[in-house]
Design a protein around this nucleic acid. Structure first.
Lengths: 208, 208
DNA sequence: GTATGTGAAGTAATTCACAGCT
DNA sequence: AGCTGTGAATTACTTCACATAC
């Protein structure tokens, strides 16, 4: 590969799928895996997998495939480089509570570190090791807990408000579960996950 | 526009965002909206919005913009054509419970009609008007409730099993929240939503 | 003047085809 | 043989530039 081409966010997304798959294989004591095997396991094509991997670094051995431990290290270096991702949650309703309890957010590499809600009855409680704070303390708490990414899980009427608080606290990434668009300054990335839209768009695809 | 070009799934996804926005505007008694206004509200560009809309049908008036009622009807005709989407849920744990209670899945256009779980303590309960069934009854219940799309919200170890049941029941669309790939026969579409991956990939983007 | 609609140009992403390695 | 790695071709998507309508 050439020295350091830029890597698209699609490739990064797939790299995370490869990592997830490799973790499973490592647990089953596999040592090597080929792009064809990964293709069957992930539903992607072998060529795409090789292209993706080669954009990180060359690690495969012809005829044998990839050494799982090496490939894991290469991908992890790229996507995390020993960082821990700290999430802060806005809104502890139905969805927010599920997020609080989601095991994937209490790993060494990714931790939910604080939650905010406006309901007085929830403030001060600790769920799954995470304290729920009042909205007034956002900047202070986010700073103290080293928040990286804000999660919007409030009703759509309050989504923009939550986004503003997240921006005010200096975070550069937002995952927005509210079914409403939010506007943010340049330099802040928003990823929208509107369940209704995800399902309807799948339905449209299928109905073709 | 030419007669019936095929419409990409990206365009459909954005059409659903337009619809969501138009609903909000209609509630505030707006009558007309321009592509520029929609662009500011959604964070997309005006050209993209016009291109998308024109791929459905021409409905705008130069200088005035789009009549909201007309545009809504055009988009709805395309994405739903008076259908109701019926969802069936697999797994009533933390995430599954949040999905059961999610208001967006109890609308006229989109209904969660059945849930399945293997825990005997949950089977037979009714949450939010939705009954929880045993896994043995999947094909029968899915057929009776006219299920369209299956939701996988079980632990990753059981994800493939759930996918197999969904396929067996004849459904053609799956939304998979489990952090594991599932393999399905051709003709079945799977949309993966792995929260961990969504957050990590945003983190990588931001860290650029 | 202001907004829509669209062919043409430009970018990004995927797939093909095959070279190279063991 | 069997697998990786990659330039080239293809396809998909977005942006530009401008014709058109009011």
């Amino acid at each position: 590969m050439g020295p350091m081409k830029k890597i698209s966010s699609k490739t990064i997304g797939r790299a995370l799928i490869y990592l997830r798959t490799l973790d499973g294989l490592a647990k089953q004591r596999w040592r090597y895996v080929s792009s064809g095997q990964l293709a069957r396991m992930t539903g992607l094509t072998d060529v795409q997998i090789r292209k993706d991997i080669s954009s990180f670094r060359k690690v495969g051995t012809p005829k044998v495939g990839y050494k799982i431990a090496d490939l894991k290290r290469t991908l992890e270096d790229f996507v995390l480089q020993e960082n821990v991702v700290h999430l802060v949650l806005f809104g502890v309703g139905n969805l927010g509570s599920a997020i609080l309890k989601y095991p994937g957010f209490h790993q060494p590499k990714m931790k939910l570190v604080a939650a905010f809600d406006q309901s007085a009855s929830k403030i001060g409680k600790v769920v799954n090791g995470v304290r729920i704070y009042s909205m007034e303390n956002v900047p202070h708490v986010v700073h103290r807990t080293h928040g990286d990414i804000g999660i919007i899980a409030v009703p759509k009427e309050s989504a923009q408000e939550a986004a503003d608080l997240i921006v005010l606290a200096g975070l550069k990434g937002i995952v927005n579960f509210a079914p409403a668009s939010v506007t943010v300054p340049k330099g802040v990335r928003v990823k929208d996950i509107d369940f209704t839209i995800e399902f309807l768009s799948l339905f449209c695809d299928v109905r073709t």
